[in-house]
Amino acid sequence: MEKYPMEALIMDYWDENTSPDNKKKIEKQLLEAGYSKEELLNLKAFYSSLDDVQIPEPRDRMTESFYKMLTSEQPSTRGKTAPTQRLLTWWQQAEKRLVPKLGYAFALVILGWALGTWVTPDVRYKNRISEMTGEITEMKEMVMLNLLKQSSPSERMKALNFVDDWNEVDTEVVRALMQTLNYDPNVNVRLVTVVTLARFTANPAVREGLIRSINRQQSPLVQLALADLMVSLHESESVPQFQRLLEKKDLNYEVRDRINEVIRML
């Protein structure tokens, strides 16, 4: 059996979970061993002061490198490193986490609406339900816009999942999504924003915003996602933006190759 060192007892003495009775016993042993109460108190205070030493946050490049590694190591995608595949992988992960929760919420709203229509077929009630549906949509929009302003990337990701249930977006939502696409500090949030906006490209403001965003992106993953989107939209208006992007000396070489290819395709 392990011999319990005297110093280990000090850690038990400091431990918040040690009972008062045990603490008294340990204190007695420590005083007998020559430790002074003052010395132990000073050391404990010093140990607590270590909390003051702060460190920086990891940069986005760490997350980008991880997802790049994960995509290239996945058996199903090995050899297929198309940018859309990478984007899709990320999206699938986010979707699996968030969609079920939103699905329940959406199902409840629909159930409420259907029950209301069935139980009260009167026109007045139908009008009221229509008003309520409008109010719910407004509330969801308000929640989404608020979530988008949160400091946590996962909260902002939830906001983007809200939009997934909508068939159309108004000017305010488009403006908020464009703001996120262009200025959000988290590359994953920006990536999912590309996917979200891709559903509304029938809206000319969205299309134009996406084209304008090409030159504002610093992350190779987002640049590639936008390049793939422009190809799928056959958007030749984006060519001048891609040409400007090619002028950047620090452009990632993989992105450079892909953009040259995209320009040829468009």
Partner: peptide, 17 residues
Amino acid sequence: PEGTIKARVFRAIRSLK
């Protein structure tokens, strides 16, 4: 062992001080 780790943590605090 757990006790050894506790003792090491304490010694580390003392060295640091």
